[in-house]
Design a protein around this nucleic acid. Structure first.
Lengths: 337, 337
DNA sequence: CTGTTAGCGCCTTCAT
DNA sequence: ATGAAGGCGCTAACAG
């Protein structure tokens, strides 16, 4: 039976409101009363009951991050960082798996909003792919910050990287090494990154005056299997590519596996690039040339932005673009001969 | 301004208690009243306010999983599965990063218990390493289920694999291939798996009548860097091992990287085994021979056990041991010559 | 079968 | 600077 605010008030010889003031750091309490109350709090081991506070204020002090499992491996270092922010700001962070078009996911989301009164949301791709999420949050007037959203909105704040630029840099890197037949693996259609990266790849080719060969553009869905299968097919082509830009790192792992299986030496016989710079990419052999997405910073930045909104503070901008950086490792080299 | 139970009652022309009964599926409501209430609920779009319910019942309907970030990569497929259980059982699952001996982690845990009134906890290694967690939960009488705990308790339910057996099987596999100089990489001292796996390794050697060579036992801390460094040192030995049993998969990735860097062919010149069967282990080249830990099942089983306890149901047993299985992939072969 | 009453622990409003 | 009263939305305990 934990102590309540009443116990503290009795012990300190004051009203519960005064205790409440001390707890919440409100003004209009004399220093000595404050001290007395604080002593009483420690004496009885008082801790405020969050449920009661939530009810009285009709707020949950919880924010929710919608994550699509299987993508975006939330390397738990990220989660840890986000939790820390929550700790500092006194918000609990709820990580919620969300599958677009999945009806259970939707119901859970509705319950989170209408029953739990979650104060705000952060979405990650591709959880924003359907309008359902944004619409729902819109009608309930629940604040939302998006990470790399499919549609960039003027009204919904978002944090993103510059995928067009990053993909262009990757492609230019391969071109500068002398590659001319560069394959590109496309991601799922419900993620903006898929299209932006394709655009970056194409832009680089066009800028170099090279044709875009549709047979060199394949689907990978940003998965290992996608990368694997595409590679088996690509390398069976009459004139196979000398480099594969895998669209993302996970697909690149599949490319690497397939290349090994075929007996191709990386990077001597085949250069491979990824995108995202997952933690594993520097641990796999050979190290994967990729673009570092500041995922941690993105989630952190989005979370902080959301909390600012919840506190009623204004954002400097609704559009936060974070810089990405090409990371050169061992998986790229000049083409054979 | 969402609808409350009163609105529903007014609309259905009954008391709020009757509405409450319908919501909670309690008996003693006539079918027609029930139907009328349900219609009213839909009509006004009513959803119960969880905070109010939590307050009234002094329960949170939340359970918390303590996870050490950086280990045990909660491949988010796992998380998704756990969330599903929560969904079915009407519990919210809070994933909480926890660092043993880290004071902020401790404070957060205290807050979770004393302020949020979390109904129960699941711990994962090494979050149970200090007695702090178990003690705290014990004094607050909060139910706890442990996964692979350091100390196996008679009173605290736990779910575990058989690491001694698994490690023994790995070692026997290597022995059967003809390896005689098998190195073992030890994990951190705050995880039971470290010691159990070492024991399994030693048991297998002893059973085969082979000596235990301390120079072949090294620390890896179950990390990439640990595996990498240990391998560089081991292969510099006057008579290096022909196989390395890396203690866990992440360390094995470091071993693989180091081997590649040294120019050793896997598995022809060096055999490598891991333990855990992380998702990446079948995607890395060559596929990693390892022991499949049924991590998902363990977390699921622990979560279900906890919920049973919370519901006041008895567990069949306080000790749930799940079977592991040796998985043979491409990283092991007979030793050179 | 159904309703009334009294909290749960806190915050808000308005006095003092 | 402090306190009293009322209410947040729900459930528990007891009447009817």
């Amino acid at each position: 039976m934990p102590a309540t605010i009443k116990d503290v008030a009795r012990m300190a010889g004051c009203s519960i409101k005064t205790v409440s003031r001390v707890i919440n750091g409100e003004p209009y309490v004399s220093e000595e009363t404050r001290a007395r109350v604080q002593a009483a709090i420690r004496a009885v081991g008082y801790a405020p009951n969050i449920s009661a506070r939530r009810l009285a204020q009709n707020k949950s002090f919880m924010i929710c991050i919608l994550l699509y499992p299987g993508l975006l491996q939330p390397s738990s270092a990220i989660l840890s960082r986000v939790m820390d922010i929550g700790y500092e700001e006194n918000y609990d962070i709820l990580i919620q798996p969300y599958f677009p078009t999945h009806s259970r996911s939707k119901r859970k989301l509705v319950s989170l909003i209408s029953e739990q009164h979650i104060d705000g949301f952060v979405t990650t791709p591709p959880c924003d792919a359907e309008d359902f999420v944004a619409d729902l949050l819109g009608t309930y007037k629940v604040p939302l910050v998006q990470i790399n959203p499919f549609h960039r909105s003027d009204t919904i704040p978002f944090v993103a990287g510059d995928d067009v630029l990053g993909a262009r840099q990757v492609t230019e890197h391969l071109l500068s090494l002398g590659h001319r037949r560069i394959a590109f693996l496309m991601g799922p259609r419900n993620m903006r990154a898929s299209f932006d990266r394709l655009a970056g790849y194409q832009n680089a080719l066009l800028a170099a005056g090279l044709p875009i060969d549709p047979t060199l553009i394949r689907d990978s869905e940003f998965t290992f299997d996608g990368g694997y299968t595409a590679t088996r097919l690509l390398m069976d082509l009459p004139s196979p590519p000398t480099a594969i830009f895998a669209g993302n790192d996970e697909a690149a792992y599949g490319v690497i596996f397939a290349a090994h299986e075929i007996g191709l030496r990386i990077p001597d016989q085949l250069s491979i690039c990824g995108y995202d710079d997952f933690a594993m990419s520097k641990n796999i052999w050979p190290g994967l040339t990729t673009v570092h997405q500041p995922l941690e910073e993105m989630i952190e930045s989005a979370t902080r932005a959301l909390i600012r909104i919840l506190k009623g503070e204004a954002l400097d901008s609704n559009q936060i673009i974070l810089p990405s950086a090409l990371v050169l490792r061992g998986s790229t080299a000049p083409p054979p001969r």
